[in-house]
Amino acid sequence: MEPILEVKGLRKSFKDFTLQDISFSLPRGFIMGLIGPNGSGKSTTIKLIMNLMRKEAGEIRVCGLDTHRHELAVKQKIGFVYDENHFYDELTVLEMKKIVAPFYREWDEEAFTYYVHRFQLPVRKKIKELSKGNKMKFALTVALSHHAELIIMDEPTAGLDPVMRSELLEVLGELIQDERKGVLFSTHITTDLDKVADYIAMINEGRVLFSVAKDTLQETCGLVKGGKSQLTPEVKDRLIGLREGSFGFEGLTTNRKQMQDLLGEQGIIERPTLEEIMVYLVRGYRDADVGS
């Protein structure tokens, strides 16, 4: 079966930033987290997938269809939730639904009513009167009411309280039970992805640093801690984002086994969280830039 989302060699230049050679692939039935610091290119990648910007090179396919050539057919298959509200403030939830629904061939009124009740959305209230959380829930309701196969979410949990974030993650967990669907979830709140993501793609300074299964990533990477005596030149060379203190050091390895062999039994290598992987990689990238 073809991947639900495939991005190959994507490129887009701006005055002071270039997104280059972005490639990753999301199989059906999985959630992919797109991580990276602010300004790394996550939102630009999503805007290119949604054709909100024009790519200079590369190919994007959703359900096997080229997003440029089959734009409308592709958008029928995508449900989107963005980091901020783009609905019309002056309209009520019901009025807004009436505007959006006719554009989807497979709009499902029953699904809409189900999610409205589940999220307890006040349908007669104007969008501007909704809380930030309810605005996101409304966007999610629309995204889930037209049998979308791919759900694209750009920082949907930014600014939400933990209860709402956990509610959102619960819905995503349920959604992915349908193995024909897929979710691309961009965020820098990586704890959300620790809970639900199957794959992780990390972007930094406009490049993909890796795109792998989350478990593989956490099994191969390790957070290395040790005393000064253990920091041999060989160990030093293999650590990313190394920080040395007066008592010891900390760094990230992308080859846990090799590092364990180098350090022997005295070495402490912990399973890193996604946040730690992101922080160390970005730090390592910056250190390399400063050094070069």
Partner: peptide, 18 residues
């Protein structure tokens, strides 16, 4: 102006409309 407020053009261009 209403399309500009909340940058609703992003919403419109994300829908299946040419």
């Amino acid at each position: 102006a209403h399309d500009d407020k909340n940058r609703s053009e992003i919403l419109l261009n994300s829908l299946p409309i040419s």
